[in-house]
Structures are given as C-alpha cells and as structure tokens.
C-alpha cells in the first residue's frame, strides 16, 4: 500500500505517526466505526431539519405557486377564449352592417334611377309633343306659303302672258290666258 511505502521512505519517526494513522482509518475511513455515531447523529439532525423545512415551508409554498400559476393560465385561456368570441361577434356585426348598408345603397340607387327615368320620360314626351306641334304648324305654314306661291306664279304668268300678247300686237284674251296658265301650272 502507498502508506507503507511512505512510511519506509520517510524513516522511523514518521512511521509511527503513519502507523497510528492507518490503524485508526483501517485503510478506508468509511469503515472506522468509531466515527459512525457522530455521523449518524448529525445526519439525523440534518434530515429532520430538511424534512421540517421542506414539509412546513418549501413544499406547500411551491405547491401553492404552481396551483396559482395553473389557475392564472386557465383564467387567461378562458379570457382569451372570451375575447376571441367577442371579436368574432364584432366581426359578424360589422359584416352585417356592411351588407345592410350595401343593400340600402342599392335600393337608393334603384329609386334614383327610376325617378330619373320617370322625369326623363315626362320631359321627352313633352318635348316630343312640342316638336310635333311645331312641325305641324310649320307644315301648315309651308302649305300656305306653297299655295300663295302657286297663286303668285299664276298671277305672274297671266300678267306676263298678257304683256307678251300685247307686245306681239294682240289683244289679250283674259279667259284664254287663264285657261292656258291653269293648264301649264297644273302639273
């Protein structure tokens, strides 16, 4: 053993010290039963202290903290679920409002269109009637103008014919001229 080597190497004076040393530790200090009582005594005290500290203070406290945390997490999850539901409701309400507004806008547009169409129809009809009346009037005027023109043409033709007859040295026969002018202007 190492101890023995040490003893022989170091001389007699130290050898006694080493010998007593190795005697009371018997190679393995763990097997020196003189020290067992001391260690067991202090171990029991140590265990009792740790047991009371843990069971009276530490473990209930940690259990409470863990339970509280679990509770908080559960609560927060429930709250989050609730908020999510509320958000969903709000979204549905928003969508509904949007759809309503759109429908209303559609009806307003349709109404306005109908109104405009009605107005337009009235105005168009009125304008058509006016145009028709004006056209009729104009036609009548044109008719009158055409009639008077024809009449004037006949008068001018008669006068011209009488003048031509006179210039040729004849005596204008009013009846013959009338008949001739009527004959020519007919067609």
């Amino acid at each position: 053993m190492a101890t023995d080597t040490h003893a022989t190497g170091d001389g007699l004076a130290d050898a006694t010290g080493v010998a007593t040393h190795s005697a009371d530790s018997a190679g393995m200090p763990q097997l020196n039963f003189e020290h067992w009582g001391n260690q067991i005594f202090w171990l029991v005290i140590t265990l009792v202290v740790i047991y009371f500290v843990l069971s009276r203070v530490a473990l209930p406290r940690i259990a409470a903290v863990l339970a509280e945390r679990q509770g908080t997490i559960t609560n927060d999850l429930a709250k989050a679920e609730d908020l999510k539901r509320q958000a969903g409701d709000a979204e549905a309400a928003y969508d509904k409002a949007l759809a309503d507004a759109r429908a209303e806008a559609q009806t307003i547009i349709a109404e306005a269109k109908a109104e405009i169409a009605a107005d337009l129809k009235v105005a168009t009809d009125k304008a058509d009637a006016e145009i028709a009346a004006k056209a009729a009037e104009s036609e009548k005027e044109i008719e009158a103008i055409r009639a008077s023109a024809l009449e004037n043409v006949a008068i001018v033709a008669r006068d011209t014919a009488a003048e031509i007859v006179t210039a040729l040295g004849g005596k204008p026969d009013a009846d013959a001229i009338d008949a001739a002018v009527a004959e020519r202007t007919k067609g």
Partner: peptide
C-alpha cells in the same frame, strides 16, 4: 477525538447541504 456530538468536517458539510436546500427551496421561492 471524534465523539458523538463533536462538530466535524462531516457536520460542516451536512450543515452546508441544509443551507443549500434552504437557499434553493425557501429563499429561492
């Protein structure tokens, strides 16, 4: 001499173990 109630190095390190347990489990929480 190591008697029944002598404070030894074993006692010291057991005591330190108790302190460590208290530090972690009581002071820490």
């Amino acid at each position: 001499d190591v008697g029944m109630f002598t404070i030894t190095n074993a006692t010291l390190w057991m005591f330190l173990a108790v302190l460590a347990v208290i530090a972690l489990m009581v002071l820490g929480t």
